[in-house]
Write a protein that binds this DNA or RNA. Structure first.
Lengths: 339, 339
DNA sequence: TTGTAGGCGTTATCAT
DNA sequence: ATGATAACGCCTACAA
C-alpha cells in the first residue's frame, strides 16, 4: 500500500553514482558532464522522482515562497492586489501563500508566526483592523525575515511600505463634489484609528478648507465595519437625526453602496439631493444604479510593486537596510452618482 | 548581523538535558515530568525559540497544511468557498495554502505539483476551464496525497467530490421563468465542456420539456470567458441577428450583469421584454438595478464541507478508499429582473 | 521519565 | 567532474 517514494538516493544507487552528483544534475549545476546529467534526468523520470521541497528548503534555507496576509480576499481590492503580487512573484520564480486575517489581531499574529516558522522568504502584510500594536511584526523582522507593509500600514515599523495616495485621492474627489456645487459634504469613514481612514479624512478636510467650506464634525461619520449594511444603517440614523448633507464621500465603494440603498429606502434622489462618491472602483461601483463616482485604486499594480520591492530586498547581496516608501496615485472616475 | 536562531538543541544544552526531552516537552507529550516540561517552556520563551516547521514536517511527514486551487479568488463564489475551507481547516488545526490557476491548465499542473512537492496533507481542487485531461491529478493521488474535487469536477477521477446540484438548480430557476409566462427562454452558458455548464444545460432543457416548450438550439449561447463584457457582446450580437428571446438564464451572475448592460444599451426593458436570471447570488446581483433573480449557492458551506471531508480522509486510520460524493442544493431568490 | 541514535531528503563544503 | 560527509532542525523507535 505505502508507495515507495523515490529520492535522489535511489537514483544515485540505480546509476551507481553519488547523491551529490544527482543533486547537482537535477538542478542544472554548471560543472557536470552532459551525459551524466541526461542519464540522471532520464532515470528521475523513469523512477517518477519528485523533489521534496521541505528537505530542499531546510537545507538551502530558502523556500522561494512569499507569504501574503490580507484582511479578506472577498473584496476586489484585496484579491486584485494579490493577483498583482502573484504576477510579480511568478516572474521571479517565487510562489505565494495567501492568508486572511479576517480583521482579527489574534489571527494576524498566528498567521505571521506560522509564516515565519515555515521559513517563507518574505512577508507582505496589510494590517488587520484590530491591530494597534506591532511587536509581532517587529519580532519577525528581527528574526531576519523581510516584511513589507502595504495599504494598511503603520508608522511604528521601519520597513518598506506601499500605499495609496489617500490624502490626495480623497482631496481630489471631495474637490469634485465641491465643484458640483455641494456645500454640506459628509465623510463616511471606517475606523479612524486606521491610517488609511485618517489620511482620507485629512484629504477631505483639506479639500473643504481650500473650497472655503467649514468642517462640521457632525458630518464625519465613523463606522467600524466595512459592510454595506453598516453604512446603510449609519445613513438611516443620520436622517432620523435630521442631519442632511447634500453630498457624501465614502471611504470605500462597499460603503457607498450601503448609502445608495439607504437613499432608495428614504426616497432620497441621487445625486440631486445627495451626491455619493466612493473609493476603490470595484465592479460594483460600475454596475450599480446610479453608477458610482469613485477613485480607481490600481490594486493590481500595488501588489505587483509590493512584490517587486520585497523580492529586491530578499535578493539584495548585502542587507542594505534601506527601505522604500512607495505611493500609488488613485484616479478619479466620474459617474452618475455625482453628475 | 546574522542572528543566531535558537533550536531545540540549544535549549537542550542550556538545560543540560537531551533534545528528545525538549522535543517532547515542546509539544505536550504525556510522559514527561511536569517540572521539566515547564522548565523547557520557560527556557524556550527566554531564548526566543520558534519551531522550524520545515524540519518538523520533514521528519514527521505531516505538514498540517491543506492546499487549495481555484480558478480565481476574484469572484465571490470562490473567495467564499475558501473562507469555508479555512474555517473548517482552522477548527482542525490545519492551515490553508491558496493558489489561483487563472483558468490555465499549465498553471494548474504546476500548482498541483508544487503542492505535492511541498508535502501538503491534502489538496482541494476546482478544475480550470482549460483542463481536459486528468493525469496530473491521478498522479498526485497515486503518490498518496488525498485530493478532493469541488464545484469544477470530472468523472474521470475516482475521489471525493462536492458539487452544487446544478441540474436541479437550473431546472428550478428556468421553471420559474416559465411560470412567469415566458416562452422563448435562452441559456447563456460558459464553455459546455465544463461539467457544471453542461449540468445546468441539462436542467434548463428538462425544465423546458416539462413546461411544454421546445428546445431551440439557437437559444443556447456559449461563451468561453466568465466576464460581463463577453456576455454583453453575446447579447448585442444576438440582437443584431434578430433573435429575440423573452427570457434568459445565465450560467453566472457576472454574465447576467453583462446581459443587463446590453439591455440598457439596446433599450430593452427588463423584465418585460427580457427577464434575466443568474446563478450564484453574488453581492452584485442584489445591488444592480433591476436586482437580479438568481440561485443562491452556499459557497461557504461547500468549502466547509469539502474541507471536512478531506480532513476525514486524511485522518482515517485505514486508507478506506471510500469516497464521498456530496451535492449542495442552491436556493431560488426572486428579485426584480424576473418580476 | 529520559537519553541515544538513526533517520527525514537535500544542499553544500571539501577533497580528489 | 565527481564523491564523501557533514549539516539543516526535528522526530521517534529503542534502550535505559
Amino acid at each position: 500500500m505505502s508507495k515507495k517514494v523515490t529520492t535522489i538516493k535511489d537514483i544515485a544507487e540505480r546509476l551507481d553514482i553519488s547523491i551529490a552528483t544527482v543533486s547537482r544534475a537535477l538542478r542544472g549545476s554548471t560543472d557536470i558532464k552532459r551525459e551524466t546529467k541526461l542519464a540522471v534526468m532520464k532515470m528521475a523520470k523513469e523512477m517518477d522522482y519528485h523533489p521534496n521541497l521541505l528537505a530542499s528548503s531546510l537545507s538551502s534555507k530558502k523556500t522561494k515562497i512569499l507569504g501574503v496576509v490580507v484582511p479578506t480576499i472577498n473584496r476586489q481590492f484585496w484579491s486584485n492586489s494579490i493577483s498583482g503580487i502573484e504576477n510579480s512573484a511568478y516572474e521571479h520564480g517565487y510562489k505565494v501563500m495567501i492568508f486572511q486575517s479576517a480583521e482579527s489581531f489574534q489571527k494576524e499574529i498566528e498567521i505571521v508566526e506560522t509564516l515565519a516558522n515555515s521559513r517563507v522568504d518574505g512577508i507582505l502584510l496589510a494590517l488587520s483592523q484590530e491591530t494597534k500594536t506591532y511587536d509581532h511584526i517587529q519580532s519577525i523582522i528581527d528574526r531576519g525575515i523581510p516584511v513589507l507593509l502595504f495599504e494598511r500600514v503603520c508608522t511604528e515599523i521601519n520597513t518598506s511600505k506601499v500605499i495609496t495616495d489617500d490624502r490626495n485621492g480623497a482631496k481630489e474627489i471631495v474637490a469634485h463634489l465641491i465643484n458640483k456645487g455641494k456645500k454640506k459634504i459628509a465623510y463616511l469613514s471606517g475606523p479612524i484609528s486606521l491610517g488609511v481612514c485618517e489620511d482620507r479624512l485629512a484629504g477631505y478636510k483639506e479639500a473643504l478648507r481650500e473650497g472655503g467650506l467649514n468642517i462640521d464634525p457632525n458630518l464625519v461619520l465613523e463606522i467600524d465595519e466595512f459592510s454595506y449594511s453598516a453604512a446603510e444603517k449609519a445613513i438611516l440614523t443620520l436622517w432620523e437625526n435630521g442631519v442632511r448633507p447634500d453630498a457624501i464621500f465614502c471611504f470605500a465603494d462597499i460603503l457607498a453602496i450601503g448609502v445608495l440603498q439607504a437613499c432608495k429606502k428614504l426616497g432620497v434622489n441621487v445625486p440631486k439631493e445627495l451626491a455619493i462618491a466612493g473609493f476603490g472602483n470595484d465592479d460594483l461601483s460600475k454596475f450599480v444604479s446610479p453608477s458610482l463616482t469613485t477613485m480607481a485604486q490600481p490594486s493590481f499594480e500595488m501588489g505587483h510593486m509590493a512584490a517587486d520591492l520585497i523580492l529586491e530586498e530578499i535578493n539584495a547581496e548585502e542587507r542594505t537596510l534601506k527601505f522604500y516608501n512607495k505611493t500609488i496615485k488613485p484616479q478619479l472616475i466620474i459617474r452618475e452618482s455625482t453628475e
